[in-house]
Design a protein around this nucleic acid. Structure first.
Length: 675
DNA sequence: GGAAGATCGA
């Protein structure tokens, strides 16, 4: 069917004005009267549907108009692309964009998108974390002769905060726009500050604040909330608090987000009581709490095992008319399971059924984990096998959870069987699955099994992570025969390794050293961790694995941080004795931090001397690890740090190592022991 | 004319 001439503009106007009110019956009326809608009418309808968030229907209508031979114009494309981007369907928007540029295989006319549409898609892509795609489009746009403006730059700069190292690129873009004569505005500054704060570079963010004031750009509420969150993430709660109270003086009243940020800071640092105080303050001041407020508080409460208080908060959510979301439900199910309130968790899920909330496989993963943690791995297995009947497809997480439960109870053979079963069913094991099994076998001193699974891992091209290394280190250091195992360790395939090997090596060694002492810390001692905020240490407590992960944000403070943590640990927990592995960590940290004056004797060397007295071959163990890392990277032929020295800024450090007597001594030891 | 920024879990 070919469309007739467009209907009279009066009809299109009627459609346009009524769709805005969401009255779509008008279209039916027009069709019944024998009018055939044209592009303008369709576009108006699509716009109306987008306005009331019925983007799916808008897309259907778009398809229909094309099927009926009515050609979309540039405004039709623009309207739909806008709607799709706004509702998190940027992938589809991108497809449309490409059709629009290429002319849909000759079916439709080609159009040249303008600045604002590029800006819309780039922003949408950034919001959905597809920053690489956004960068591609950015180049495409520049290639077609459109100069990006401050909005496009700002979108990209804030999008880059998705990546840990995004701040460097964000900074580059910032400089690029300055060079191009485009003035950054408050949004641009906020975006860059956020990228810096996300990785703990609050000092630089502060300098940026000064710069913006200098340039006459007035900071706003977003600026201060961003900075405050940066402080919180570093555990610098006192600074965050100070900023919170000083905001009023700077002419920016606090908003509910300011409260949320601070409450989140306290919750994450194991000081939920203080978070609660700010929550009460918020209510007293007449702010309306949001679901963020509650989710944050609940996370903190469950983390500190305050299940009763969590239920009280749940009542307050209802009382204050705030709508819980899927995150709230997840926090509850997870929190209850983790706090051994399995029955309550089941009740909770049952209650969710009445609210129309549909549990997902992730919910069952929580339940299964809860069952396993409570030592009911058999019940968990029963539930696990019932899931497919109910239409839930077990994921790699589901399998890994059960495998974890089995390993925990020493049922390693059954764990091994389930591994085979998951592969049979076509579910690919990931690094967590392997780590779980490896840990199980390590704890049982089954070195041959460890080697077998490392080999499987390499065959399936699953890249090991810091935990894998830490598990292997554990085996290497606790067993005298580590050099024998070392010869058995497979050489990992270089395929699938896209990262810069020297980067990987550095990350690997640093994470390993962290993991070692983390494993030795008293795991329930939240108070100790709270005292770390002066040290610029970002704390990430993973409730799932009940292990602590920490990153000293400032590399130069790592060694100091490690020392402090170890001594706190021995101070708080009388049973805690500093062992040789701890010294190893200190030495390793000192070197990796290039700190030269810890404990007076000169950084890592000082600890190395202590270490020498305790155990001469500790460095042999350390080098064994390095060698393992290197063989994994197929760098066996070169010295461990020769690849590192390729990076100019690490030159000094690698020399430190190579000249060090322990290092040389142990290196020759390893060379001899290698067949 | 339109487009951009901060807080929650796993």
């Amino acid at each position: 069917m070919v469309s007739k001439a467009p209907p009279c503009s009066a009809a299109a106007t009627a459609v346009s004005s009524t769709v805005r009110q969401g009255r779509f019956g008008v279209l039916g009326g027009i069709l019944k009267k024998g009018y055939s809608p044209g592009t303008v009418t369709y576009t108006a309808l699509i716009k109306g549907l987008c306005l009331v968030d019925r983007v799916g229907d808008a897309a259907k209508l778009f398809k229909k108009m094309r099927r009926l031979g009515c050609r979309p114009n540039i405004i039709t494309y623009g309207t739909l692309i806008n709607g799709l981007c706004r509702t998190g369907n940027t992938g589809l928007a991108l497809q449309l964009h490409q059709e629009m540029v290429n002319g849909n295989g000759g079916l439709d006319s080609k159009f040249k998108p303008n600045l604002v549409w590029y800006s819309t898609i780039i922003d949408g892509l950034c919001k959905e974390g597809m920053v690489d795609k956004a960068k591609e489009l950015f180049l495409e746009m520049k290639g077609s002769g459109i100069s990006p403006d401050v909005v496009v730059y700002s979108s990209l700069i804030s999008g880059l905060s998705y990546y840990d190292d995004g701040w460097e690129e964000a900074k580059g873009l910032f400089i690029e726009m300055l060079d191009g004569g485009i003035c950054p505005n408050v949004v641009t500054f906020n975006g860059l500050m956020n990228a810096l704060c996300k990785v703990g570079r609050t000092q630089e963010a502060n300098r940026l604040l000064e710069l913006m004031i200098q340039r006459g750009v007035k900071p706003n509420l977003f600026t201060y909330n961003t900075l405050m969150d940066g402080y919180c993430m570093q555990g610098r709660l006192d600074d965050a608090r100070e900023l919170f109270f000083s905001m009023g003086n700077k002419g920016h009243e606090r908003d509910v987000v300011s409260y949320n940020v601070l409450i989140n800071g306290y919750s994450k640092s194991g000081r939920v009581e203080e978070g609660m105080k700010f929550y009460r303050h918020l209510i007293r001041e007449g702010f309306k709490p949001t679901i963020y407020t509650y989710n944050t508080l609940l996370t903190g409460l469950f983390k500190e095992r305050k299940v009763e208080d969590a239920w009280k908060i749940y009542d307050e959510i209802q009382a204050n008319g705030v709508k819980p979301n899927s995150i709230t439900c997840n926090i509850f199910v997870n929190g209850l399971c983790k706090n051994d309130c399995l029955l309550e968790a089941l009740e909770f899920i049952k209650a969710l059924g009445n609210t129309g909330f549909a549990p997902t496989i992730e919910f069952f993963n929580c339940i299964l984990d809860g069952l396993c943690k409570a030592g009911n791995v058999d019940t968990a297995k029963e539930l696990f096998y019932k899931l497919p009947e109910k239409g839930f497809v077990p994921t790699v997480v589901t399998y890994s959870t059960i495998i974890h439960g089995l390993c925990k109870e020493g049922k390693l053979e059954k764990a091994n069987d389930l591994f085979l079963e998951m592969e049979e069913k076509g579910c690919a094991p990931n690094v967590v699955t392997f780590n779980t099994l490896l840990r199980g076998f390590c704890q049982n001193n089954e070195a041959l099994k460890v080697v077998e699974f490392l080999r499987k891992m390499s065959e399936r091209e699953v890249s090991p992570d810091a935990h894998t290394f830490s598990i292997v280190v554990d085996l290497l250091t606790k067993d005298e025969k580590y050099s024998e195992y070392l010869n058995l360790l497979p050489t990992f395939s270089a395929q699938g390794q896209t990262n810069d090997p020297s980067d990987e090596l550095l990350r690997g060694t640093e994470s390993v050293s962290m993991s070692i002492y983390i494993a030795k810390l008293p795991s329930q001692d939240v108070g100790t961790w709270a005292r770390m905020h002066d040290m610029d240490i970002r704390l990430n407590i993973s409730s799932h694995s009940k292990e602590y992960e920490m990153i000293a944000v400032d590399k130069n403070k790592r060694a100091e941080a490690a020392r402090m943590v170890l001594f706190w640990a021995s101070e708080v927990n009388q049973e805690y004795v500093i062992v040789k592995a701890d010294y190893q960590v200190l030495v390793n940290c000192s070197f990796s931090a290039s700190v030269t004056s810890v404990e007076g004797t000169g950084g890592g060397y000082g600890y190395a001397d202590h270490l020498g007295g305790i155990c001469d071959d500790v460095f042999v163990g350390l080098s064994a690890l390095l060698l393992f890392l290197c063989s994994f990277l197929v760098l066996v032929s070169s010295l461990p740090f020769s690849c590192v020295s390729a990076r100019g800024k690490q030159e000094e450090r690698s020399n430190d190592w190579r000249n060090h007597r322990y290092y040389n001594q142990s290196w020759s030891g390893i060379q001899n022991s290698k067949v």
